[in-house]
Write a protein that binds this DNA or RNA. Structure first.
Lengths: 190, 190
DNA sequence: GTCTATATATGGATAGAC
DNA sequence: GTCTATCCATATATAGAC
């Protein structure tokens, strides 16, 4: 991995662990093994480097979600696969956590990938649920948009609970609670 | 309001807006109108002052939740009242946002009130749902603990969605999606 | 491309006068 | 209780040598 790449990867990790305000250029240099001059040669500064890191975190999150949601099985099964996907719940969501970062949200460039990612995710889930409803797998009165928003929120909130309690179990419990509720939206004899 | 009180209130706001790492002593002094010496006279330092502010944020959050959950009506109605309670969704949760703050979570003292608050909240909701089930209002196969976790997660995740999209509507949508699912847990002729 | 030197502001606090 | 002075480390760069 070349220097530029190591800088991006180190920044990705640090943004995930400590957020934008909590991540200093010095910390990035130490983790990546790159020197001061090296970092400022490859990037204009902290915001520039952060943009590269955030963009990549967002892409990876979409890729992982797509993999679970595009899988085989029923709509309800794919939603379950997505929610139960292996996650390090205590680390939280690398994209969602940035919504709490005032300096990130204040900068339209940095904020962009975050906004897009959540729009894409809820949109994709909405379309999937709508298809399940059209196919007769799900109840006709289910609201795809609201349900999708609730599901994405359960994931994001599940991370908060896991961190608050110090245990990944809290995430799992929230997810299982949501899936149990979804179960009643599946029509009996489909 | 005396100086000590203004310091706590200003810190509460700043922790809410910018988190712990993003809040400097100088910013606290400016917002509260207190001088350097004044702040260090009343508190030993940033962590000490933050503890007072976090404790108060946690107490207020419990108080507000209790007010909605202890209200009149059915169990499902009280849950709905809690979820729909007036909130500034774009500001996020003053307690939940701190779970993303590495320096807060690393300090057992600062972390304490956060852990307690979420334990209390999910516990209270669990008990309420269990009562609804025992009373025959809710389906007998509903899992109170998992459902409570899912509901708390929807609230916390709803804040994330609101901030990510820049609109409080995202919060409202997630909440309504969850409430629609809960509706199917109510028994027909109770 | 990488390194070292240098620079200004801020973070977070202590000391002592009033 | 509050104010001013002072302190050392870190944040966030820029400049220029190699």
């Amino acid at each position: 991995m070349d220097t530029r790449e190591r800088l991006i990867e180190s920044t990705r990790e640090l943004l995930w662990e400590r957020g934008y305000v909590g991540t200093s250029p010095k910390a990035i240099q130490q983790r990546s093994g790159a020197g001061q001059g090296s970092m400022y040669h490859h990037f204009h500064g902290k915001p520039d480097l952060a943009l590269a890191a955030i963009t990549r975190n967002a892409e990876e999150m979409r890729e992982r979600a797509r993999a679970a949601l595009d899988g085989p099985g029923t709509v309800a099964g794919r939603v379950a696969a997505y929610l139960r996907r292996e996650r390090d719940a205590l680390k939280g969501c690398p994209v969602g956590r940035l919504t709490q970062d005032p300096d990130v949200m204040a900068d339209p460039e940095l904020r962009g990938p975050i906004e897009e990612t959540f729009a894409w995710l809820t949109g994709t889930l909405t379309a999937l649920l709508a298809r399940g409803r059209a196919d007769g797998e799900l109840r006709p009165d289910l609201d795809p948009g609201a349900t999708a928003a609730a599901l994405v929120a359960v994931v994001q909130g599940g991370y908060v609970l896991a961190r608050a309690t110090g245990s990944p179990d809290a995430y799992a419990q929230a997810v299982e609670g949501a899936l149990a509720l979804i179960r009643f939206q599946e029509k009996e004899n489909h």
